[in-house]
């Protein structure tokens, strides 16, 4: 097994958002600013890697027909850890991400990887797969957030870009999220079709 391959496939070839098309809700909702996107990436990748490791370790022991509830408990436990730690040490981030921290539980990427990959592969491969998928998720999220923050808030990393310019607030709201992702998906199709 080529471990390097397991790691990099999540970033481009099997990018969870752009290619597989899962995990859309947090992607669109949290990409209002680059710092939100980066924190979300960190939180989701932590949960993804940890749950992948545990699921992979328990892959022989869990009876197959109750595996989904077991996965959900494992994922929810890690999400709660993230919730508590952020609340205690990074309250501003906790407030900014709000409801989307508990909603990491239902991020289809995490349950999807546990079911599809970690329950069938060894610990090292599952860790790398989790890291790669997390990075792929984060990459898409950050690119989206970069454009949305510039166009929708006239800001980057929270600093104003052009003083006095009125930004287009539709970009920071739901429509902007849909349009930006549509353009990204279209670009992706275009790049892949030229090969």
């Amino acid at each position: 097994m080529n471990y390097w391959n397991e790691f990099t496939k999540g970033i481009w070839k099997k990018n969870p958002i752009l290619i597989i098309g899962i995990g859309m809700c947090p992607t669109l909702a949290v990409s209002t600013s680059v710092s939100n996107a980066l924190w979300m990436t960190l939180a989701a990748t932590f949960v993804l890697v940890c749950s992948n490791i545990l699921v992979s370790l328990a892959r022989g022991i869990t009876p197959s027909h109750i595996r989904i509830p077991v996965f959900i408990i494992i994922i929810a436990a890690f999400v709660t850890i993230v919730e508590l730690v952020l609340k205690a040490y990074q309250e501003a981030v906790y407030d900014a991400l709000g409801i989307f921290i508990p909603l990491i539980v239902v991020n289809c990427i995490i349950l999807g990887r546990a079911e599809e990959y970690a329950s069938k592969n060894n610990v090292v491969a599952s860790t790398l797969d989790g890291l790669g998928m997390g990075l792929g998720f984060g990459f898409t999220l950050t690119v989206l957030a970069f454009f949305r923050e510039i166009l929708g808030a006239n800001k980057l990393f929270g600093y104003t870009l052009i003083p006095g310019m009125e930004p287009s607030s539709a970009m920071i709201l739901a429509p902007g999220a849909f349009f930006t992702l549509a353009i990204m998906l279209g670009m992706m199709n275009w790049i892949n079709s030229r090969k």
Binding site: V70, T80, I81, L84, V85, A88
Partner: peptide
Amino acid sequence: PSLVLLLVAFAASFSLSHIQKITYPNIIKM
């Protein structure tokens, strides 16, 4: 299956309660 589920849920809540104990004073302080 019920035993396995119970065990997993117990382990999860047990470790969470410890993490809650560590973070709680800081949450109150903040």
